Amino acid sequence: MEIIRSQEFTADRAWGAKDIANMSGVTTRLHWTDKPYIWHVNDGEEVFAVMHGVVKMLYKEDGETKSEILNAGDIFFASVGTEHVAHPQGEARILVIEREGSI
């Protein structure tokens, strides 16, 4: 049993993470960041939940780049093949649930 206070979590580098669980190959990790990630496509589905802060999520749909502002409590679901990149607007804490070994 563990209680994690997501708003208090920090890491020593952007996108540093705390491993929370691995359930049959699906990982749950809490990330801290203040810098953008890289454009990528996961090798499975991804659930991206903003716990604290604001994140500008860019993604490609039908070859067109789109974006959405995600606030604390918002969730982005990347289906298989969705190219995307997260740009935090300052510090952010994000819960990511994805296949183990995904980018």
Rank of each mutant, 00 (worst) to 15 (best):
Ser67Phe: 08
Ser24Ile: 08
Met57Ile: 14
Trp15Thr: 13
Leu70Lys: 04
Gly73Phe: 06
Asp19Asn: 15
Asp43Ala: 06
His52Leu: 06
Glu91Leu: 01
Thr33Lys: 03
Gly101Lys: 14
Met1His: 15
His52Ser: 09
Ser24Phe: 08
Leu58Arg: 15
Gly73Thr: 08
Thr65Val: 15
Gly73Met: 01
Ser67Ile: 00
Asp43Phe: 01
Val85Ile: 15
Phe9Asn: 02
Ala14Asp: 13
Arg5Met: 09
Glu100Trp: 02
Tyr37His: 15
Met23Trp: 06
Thr82Ser: 08
Val96Glu: 05
Lys66Asp: 05
Ser6His: 11
Thr65Gly: 06
Thr10Asn: 06
Lys56Ala: 08
Thr10Cys: 06
Asp43Pro: 02
Trp15His: 13
Ala21Glu: 12
Gly81Ile: 07
Asn22Phe: 11
Val47Asp: 01
Gly44Cys: 07
Ser79Lys: 12
Met23His: 13
Ile75Phe: 06
Met23Glu: 12
Asp12Gly: 11
Gly63Lys: 09
Ile94Arg: 01
Asp12Arg: 13
Ile103Ser: 12
Trp15Leu: 11
Gly25Ser: 10
Glu61Ser: 08
Asn71Cys: 00
Glu45Pro: 09
Trp32Ser: 00
Ile69Leu: 03
Arg5Asn: 15
Glu46Val: 12
Ser6Lys: 04
Glu45His: 10
Glu98Lys: 14
Thr27Phe: 07
Met23Thr: 15
Glu45Phe: 09
Glu46Asp: 05
Gly44Gln: 05
Glu61Tyr: 01
Thr10Trp: 03
His40Phe: 04
Met23Gly: 13
Ala14Val: 08
Phe77Trp: 09
Val54Asp: 09
His40Ser: 05
Thr65Asp: 09
Asp74Leu: 01
Leu30Gln: 09
Glu64Trp: 00
Gln7Lys: 15
Glu83Tyr: 03
Met23Leu: 13
Val41Ser: 00
Phe76Cys: 10
Gly63Ile: 04
Gly53Val: 04
Ser67Ala: 10
Glu98His: 11
Leu30Asp: 05
Gly16Thr: 05
Tyr59Gln: 07
Tyr59Met: 07
Ala21Thr: 15
Asp19Cys: 12
Ser24Lys: 13
Glu91Arg: 08
Ile3His: 14
Ala86Leu: 04
Gly44Pro: 03
Gly63Ala: 02
Arg5Leu: 09
Tyr59Ile: 06
Lys18Ile: 09
Ser24Pro: 01
Met1Asn: 14
Leu30Ser: 03
Arg13His: 12
Glu64Val: 14
Asp74Glu: 04
Asp74Val: 04
Val85Thr: 03
Thr65Ile: 15
Ala86Glu: 00
Phe77Gln: 05
Gly16Gln: 04
Lys66Gly: 08
Val26Ile: 15
Ile103His: 10
Leu58Phe: 13
Thr33Trp: 01
Gly25Cys: 11
Lys60Phe: 11
Lys35Asp: 03
Trp15Val: 14
Pro88Ala: 02
Ala92Met: 07
Ser102His: 10
Phe48Lys: 04
